[in-house]
């Protein structure tokens, strides 16, 4: 999966769990929490969806790596290698 696909994968998950948020204008460098109304349960949902859709495990000690889109990409690059984007 390319970096762009990883970003799309995360945005796709956020769009599903927080349908009221505008996912079109997310700044990849800025913390997601600072741009959207996301709480710790939302991050838990992202983790559960990553497991369900891509078989990727994110242990709770690593949740901090999901702070922004850029940090997600850096953290997930190896884990998502060879996976297909689920729409």
């Amino acid at each position: 999966m390319t970096d762009e696909h990883i970003k799309q994968a995360i945005i796709g998950i956020i769009a599903d769990i927080a349908p009221d948020e505008d996912t079109g204008s997310i700044d990849p460098a800025v913390r997601l929490r600072d741009q959207m109304d996301l709480d710790s349960m939302d991050f838990l949902d992202i983790v559960m969806e990553l497991r369900k859709r891509y078989g990727v495990q994110v242990p709770d000690t690593d949740y901090q790596h999901l702070a922004s889109l850029d940090s997600c990409v850096a953290y997930l690059r190896d884990k998502m290698a060879g996976k297909q984007l689920v729409s």
């Binding site: 349960m41 838990l44 559960m48 495990q57």
Partner: peptide, 17 residues
């Protein structure tokens, strides 16, 4: 309700692993 979800996530992590 939320704790049920938090624990389910831990269980799925365990089962997946």
């Amino acid at each position: 309700v939320n704790y049920g979800v938090i624990t389910a996530n831990k269980m799925a992590e365990y089962l997946h692993g």
